[in-house]
Simulated assay, not measured.
Amino acid sequence: MTGPRTKSTAGELRDAGLRVTAVRVALLETVRAGDHLDVEAIASGTRERVGHVSLQAVYEALRALTAAGLVRRIEPAGSPARFEGRVGDNHHHVVCRSCGVVADVDCAVGDAPCLAASEDHGFSIHEAEVNYWGLCPACSTSGST
């Protein structure tokens, strides 16, 4: 285990009320080792760890892990859903309009949810999601638009 985590992946699954399976453990480890991965990349990484796993099983595990708050699903406009292991801190993202690469951006200013809505319409707001759009350094220097 790397970083400050002291609990095993299996222990985290149990604490979240999820059944521990080899696929769920491998999938969670794949997401955490990756960088805003799409479902195909997660499936590939999971297969490298445990062998054959169906795409349907990957979708089901991602749905369970997302609902349990162990992974976060983001959907930049015009891009397939992506998943990340950084959860609970209400961070934002910067997305390249040319190649689609995504990077984390810490909370803009202040306490979560970082941004105050000009009108809450009676909602109790818990989170703000912001995507900044532009060109990554590689696309900026290559002349992509």
Results as ranks from 00 to 15, higher is better:
M1Q: 06
T2F: 11
T2N: 11
G3V: 02
P4W: 06
T6G: 08
T9W: 07
A10H: 01
G11R: 02
E12Y: 00
L13W: 00
D15F: 00
G17F: 02
L18W: 00
R19E: 15
R19N: 10
V20H: 01
V23F: 00
R24I: 03
A26T: 08
A26K: 04
A26P: 04
L28Y: 08
L28G: 07
T30F: 02
V31I: 14
R32Y: 01
A33M: 06
A33G: 14
G34C: 07
H36V: 05
D38W: 12
V39M: 02
V39Q: 05
E40V: 07
E40G: 02
E40H: 10
A41E: 15
A43H: 13
A43F: 03
T46G: 04
T46Q: 05
R47H: 02
E48V: 09
R49T: 10
V50N: 06
V50G: 06
G51D: 08
H52Y: 15
V53T: 15
V53G: 00
V53E: 03
L55W: 11
Q56N: 12
V58L: 06
Y59S: 08
E60F: 09
E60S: 13
A61P: 07
A61Y: 12
A61L: 09
L65N: 10
T66E: 15
A68V: 02
L70Y: 01
V71T: 13
V71K: 01
I74D: 07
I74N: 03
E75A: 15
A77D: 12
A77F: 10
S79N: 06
S79I: 03
S79Y: 07
R82F: 11
F83P: 01
E84R: 11
E84I: 11
G85T: 02
G85R: 01
R86K: 08
V87Q: 01
V87G: 02
V87R: 03
G88P: 08
G88N: 11
H91F: 14
H91T: 13
H91L: 09
H93S: 05
H93F: 06
V94L: 12
V94Q: 12
C96E: 10
S98K: 08
V102G: 01
D106F: 06
D106V: 07
V109E: 13
V109G: 03
G110M: 11
D111F: 11
C114H: 10
A116Q: 12
S118H: 14
S118A: 14
S118F: 12
D120A: 12
D120T: 15
H121G: 05
H121M: 09
H121D: 13
F123W: 15
S124P: 00
S124H: 11
S124N: 09
I125L: 15
I125Q: 06
I125T: 13
E129D: 14
V130I: 15
N131D: 15
N131E: 15
W133Q: 10
W133V: 09
L135W: 09
C136K: 11
C136G: 10
C136T: 10
P137W: 09
A138P: 01
S140D: 07
T141E: 14
S142V: 04
S144K: 09
S144R: 12
T145C: 00
T145D: 04
